Computed example of a mutant assay.
Amino acid sequence: MFFSVVIPTYNRKPILEKCLRAMEHQTLAPQSAVTGYEIVVVDDGSTDGTVTWLQTHAAAFPHVRLFEQTHLGPAAARNLGVEKAKGDYIIFIDSDLVVLAGFLQAHADALQRGLQATGSDRVFTYGTVINTCNFETPTAEPFKITDYSRAYFATGNVAIARQWLEKAGLFDTRFQLYGWEDLELGVRLKQLGLKLISCPEAVGYHWHPPFTLDQIPSLIDKEIQRGRMGVLFYQKHPTWDVRLMIQMTWLHRILWGGLTLGGALNERTMAPLLRWLINHGKPQLALEIARIFLNWYNVQGVYAAYREAQSS
C-alpha cells in the first residue's frame, strides 16, 4: 500500500509549511501495510511565493513532489494530483490541515479493517477534522460538537484506492467556484457501491484565522458561490438528498428566513453583538452566530442561481 497524499494549495504558504512538516514526520508501525508515501502538492496559481519557497526548501521536504497549474480551482488541482500520483491509494487533505504523526498508519489500519470486514475493496476511509484558529499549536485544539460531520465523502481527510477515483471519473472541473465538488464525486462513488469506513484515529486540525468582522464580505461571497455550485450539483443529481444538502428546500427557507427575521438580522444589525464577542475573546462563538445570516445568504443564493438556470 503506497500512499500519494494529494494537497491542492492556493496562497496558504504559512500554514502549508506546518501541513507539510507534519506530513514529513509520519510514524509507521513495524510490519505496516504502508510500503511508502509521497506528498503531491499542486499549486493552483498562488501569488504569495509558495512555489519559490517550496523550491528553495526542497531538501526539508523529501517526500514532496510539486506541480503547478494556472488558477483553475481545487477540483482541477486534485485531478492533476491524481494524474501525477504514483500511489495505488490516494489521500486527500487540504493545505491548511495539520495532522498527527500516526495519520497515515491510522488510515492504513482502517482500510485493512474495511477490506477484511466487507470482503471487498469498495471501501474508503474518512478521518476526523478538528477546526482551530490556533496557528502556533493547532493540534492542541479539543474536539467540539461543531466539528462533527456526516459527510459521505469530503476531501479534507479521506483515503481511497486510486482505481475507484478513476472509475468514478475524478472531480468535475466545472465546479470552479466554492463548494460541492467533493460531495458530488461522493455521489458517484456511492453509485459504484463504495462504503465509508470511519477512521477517527486519523486526526487532522483544520486551521483558519480567528473570525473578524472584516471577513464577513468574503464569507458572504463564499455562500453565494456555494449556492451557485449547489445548483450545478443538483442539475447533475436531481434528487431530494441533494436538495437537502444544498439547502434548496422550503424547510431551509423557513428555518433561516425565520431565524434572521426575513433577513433583518444580518451583518449590519448583528455587528455590535459580533464585535462584543470578538473583543471578549470569543471569535468562534461569534462565527457560529454569524452562520445564521450566512446560511440565509446561501439559501437566497441557491434559489437565485436555480431561477437563473431555469430561465436560460
Rank of each mutant, 00 (worst) to 15 (best):
residue 23 M to Q: 11
residue 86 K to M: 13
residue 111 L to N: 09
residue 4 S to R: 10
residue 299 V to W: 06
residue 40 V to Q: 03
residue 162 R to K: 07
residue 19 C to K: 04
residue 31 Q to I: 10
residue 97 L to P: 15
residue 192 L to M: 04
residue 49 G to F: 02
residue 238 P to D: 01
residue 46 S to E: 02
residue 263 G to S: 04
residue 46 S to W: 04
residue 35 T to N: 10
residue 20 L to V: 02
residue 46 S to H: 01
residue 80 L to V: 08
residue 176 Q to N: 15
residue 228 R to K: 13
residue 60 A to V: 12
residue 208 H to R: 13
residue 263 G to I: 00
residue 240 W to E: 14
residue 267 E to F: 05
residue 107 H to P: 02
residue 89 Y to S: 15
residue 201 E to H: 01
residue 239 T to C: 03
residue 307 R to L: 12
residue 39 I to F: 04
residue 281 G to A: 09
residue 202 A to K: 02
residue 252 H to P: 08
residue 72 L to S: 14
residue 201 E to T: 02
residue 52 T to C: 15
residue 43 D to F: 07
residue 233 F to P: 01
residue 258 G to L: 03
residue 312 S to V: 14
residue 271 A to D: 05
residue 76 A to D: 05
residue 83 E to S: 11
residue 72 L to V: 15
residue 89 Y to T: 14
residue 74 P to E: 07
residue 82 V to F: 02
residue 177 L to C: 12
residue 146 T to W: 14
residue 297 Y to F: 10
residue 88 D to R: 08
residue 48 D to T: 01
residue 29 A to F: 10
residue 164 W to V: 10
residue 83 E to H: 11
residue 101 A to M: 05
residue 16 L to Y: 01
residue 10 Y to S: 11
residue 180 W to T: 09
residue 26 Q to C: 00
residue 153 F to E: 09
residue 103 F to E: 01
residue 112 Q to T: 10
residue 178 Y to P: 09
residue 116 Q to P: 11
residue 181 E to G: 10
residue 193 G to M: 04
residue 95 S to K: 04
residue 62 P to D: 07
residue 94 D to H: 11
residue 133 C to L: 15
residue 128 T to V: 09
residue 164 W to D: 06
residue 285 L to K: 01
residue 267 E to K: 04
residue 273 L to I: 03
residue 114 G to C: 06
residue 281 G to M: 06
residue 49 G to Q: 06
residue 220 I to T: 07
residue 63 H to D: 02
residue 289 I to K: 00
residue 136 E to Q: 10
residue 48 D to N: 00
residue 232 L to C: 06
residue 80 L to N: 03
residue 65 R to I: 11
residue 193 G to Q: 04
residue 138 P to L: 07
residue 32 S to T: 01
residue 158 V to W: 09
residue 156 G to K: 13
residue 12 R to I: 07
residue 113 R to G: 13
residue 74 P to N: 05
residue 15 I to V: 01
residue 169 G to D: 03
residue 233 F to V: 02
residue 253 R to W: 09
residue 239 T to S: 04
residue 37 Y to P: 01
residue 20 L to G: 02
residue 95 S to P: 06
residue 209 P to T: 11
residue 221 D to G: 12
residue 284 Q to I: 14
residue 94 D to G: 12
residue 129 V to W: 13
residue 203 V to K: 12
residue 214 D to N: 08
residue 147 D to F: 08
residue 230 G to P: 03
residue 116 Q to E: 08
residue 135 F to E: 05
residue 304 A to H: 07
residue 90 I to M: 08
residue 288 E to G: 04
residue 96 D to V: 04
residue 74 P to A: 08
residue 26 Q to K: 00
residue 178 Y to T: 13
residue 180 W to E: 06
residue 21 R to I: 12
residue 18 K to R: 04
residue 258 G to S: 05
